[in-house]
Design a protein around this nucleic acid. Structure first.
Lengths: 257, 257
DNA sequence: TAAATAGTGTCTCTCAGACATTATGAG
DNA sequence: CTCATAATGTCTGAGAGACACTATTTA
């Protein structure tokens, strides 16, 4: 399908419906994994050419919506994820959208941000079209250095915050492991993301009570003693636990207006 | 400021950056209130003219982003809220974005959806520019009849779902009442939104323990006996309770992929 | 048999849910 | 005095958190 053939009559620039200028529309994807005991995020390096904004800086994978190829925003996010990682059916959730006059030097732009969880083992990194570098970077490192392109440091911070928040009461970390996995492996994934240790007994009780894992045999895990292997019963259903993992101090939380 | 004056050189329609067509960009606002014992949402009637999509149908207030007036998406949402209700500082939170080829007959479009909570007493309904009708409609009514414009029935359903979910463990209903309010009034607001009764003792304990309300005297409420009046200590801080209001059956929850 | 980790059992203390009781103002 | 509702008190069962203990495999 030719991109220029579609409803070209309706896309005049300034005299467009009600005489409005259309903002740029992009999709960015925050792709998480757990690798080497750390929560990591996939970043791409912006091209070095001086015409491009933020040359050489690290950015989230993403780009313009292609109205000829992408039927929906979600499809666009899936396409971009596939292009960079080869992964086709990850956990993929919308984070939100960011838009404004000043976030992109090329003009008023709005980006739709998704976040994905993938097992590191499923990924084969694909170098970008313009020879851009693509790598995993621990989130602790990136959140420290604030030299990312655009407002991507904000987007990443929001994604990490959402992930950490949801991990307290959902089964999300299971999407970061290759199946089958053992309960100790899953527990370690929780601990890596939350940055604190979790009681083993309570973890097992809650996880098994939630009844979203199927036993698939015994596997000689990362230790001396072998462990029971599990697989998610339904990869399309995220489990929400009735309570949080550790109530602790968290009481207030900012927001709004 | 003239809308057509800004960066017109960068807005060529089809040969735009990388030769891509820009999608339409809109913002829609789901404005909730509690009125006459029911959760209600503000809807506007689409103009009757046959050139407009969905003539005469009910829609969420919203419209195109105006790159000349709106510096951010949030500012755009605030503007649209103000235009319809006169309210300037409500609770306002982003719900997400919906975009795709087929959701608007005028072309590939993406909408950024916000939801707002306002006390009914603060609102003076403002008729739209093209004489469109503006009214409160109970959400139970609108969720039943599925004849809304665009995909707005989906957006509304998502907003209601998000609101009901968050009400279980946050102080959001306080934003629906005019200040000062009494605890029984606040409890009734929770009950209206959740559609079930809440234990009075537990409600008071939790609410006061969260320590986000300031006493501001005694008021002769809606009943025989007068009650203590409260005001939110900080309207910019949403309080998250450590636990949900009634654990009940909710265990699983769909999502993803 | 020693070391390491998988997996289970037990105790306690907090707290939500339910329900009963008291307090206060209107008519 | 009666009624309606605000506000507080009491009891109980479920469950999280902490920690001790048992089980199983490798070396």
């Amino acid at each position: 399908m030719n991109p220029k053939s579609q409803r070209s009559a309706k896309t005049t620039p300034t005299a467009d419906d009600a005489g409005l200028v259309r903002p740029l529309t992009t999709v960015d994807v925050v792709i998480f994994t757990v690798l080497e005991g750390a929560l990591q995020v996939l970043l791409v390096q912006r091209p070095q050419s001086a015409d491009e904004p933020f040359p050489g800086r690290w950015a989230l994978p993403g780009g313009y919506v292609d109205v000829a190829r992408d039927t929906t925003l979600l499809a666009c996010a899936r396409r971009k994820l596939k292009e960079k990682t080869g992964v086709t059916s990850p956990y993929l959730e919308q984070l939100g959208s960011w838009g404004g006059r000043d976030r992109d030097p090329r003009g008023w732009s709005a980006t739709h941000v998704y976040f994905a969880l993938v097992p590191a083992e499923d990924v084969r990194l694909v170098k970008g079209g313009n020879a851009a570098d693509v790598t995993w970077i621990p989130v602790d490192v990136t959140l420290g250095r604030r030299d990312m392109a655009f407002d991507h440091a904000d987007l990443l911070a929001a994604a990490v915050s959402r992930l950490r928040g949801k991990v307290e009461y959902t089964s999300l970390p299971a999407y970061l492991l290759p199946e089958p996995f053992t309960l100790p492996q899953l527990q370690r994934t929780y601990e890596v993301i939350l940055g604190r240790s979790v009681d083993k007994s309570g973890f097992r009780t809650r996880t098994l009570a939630a009844d979203f894992l199927d036993e698939v045999g015994i596997v000689e895990g990362d230790s001396n003693r072998s462990a029971v292997a599990y697989r998610m019963r339904d990869r399309d259903a995220v489990v929400t636990f009735p309570r949080t993992f550790s109530p602790r101090t968290s009481k207030e939380c900012s927001a709004t207006s």
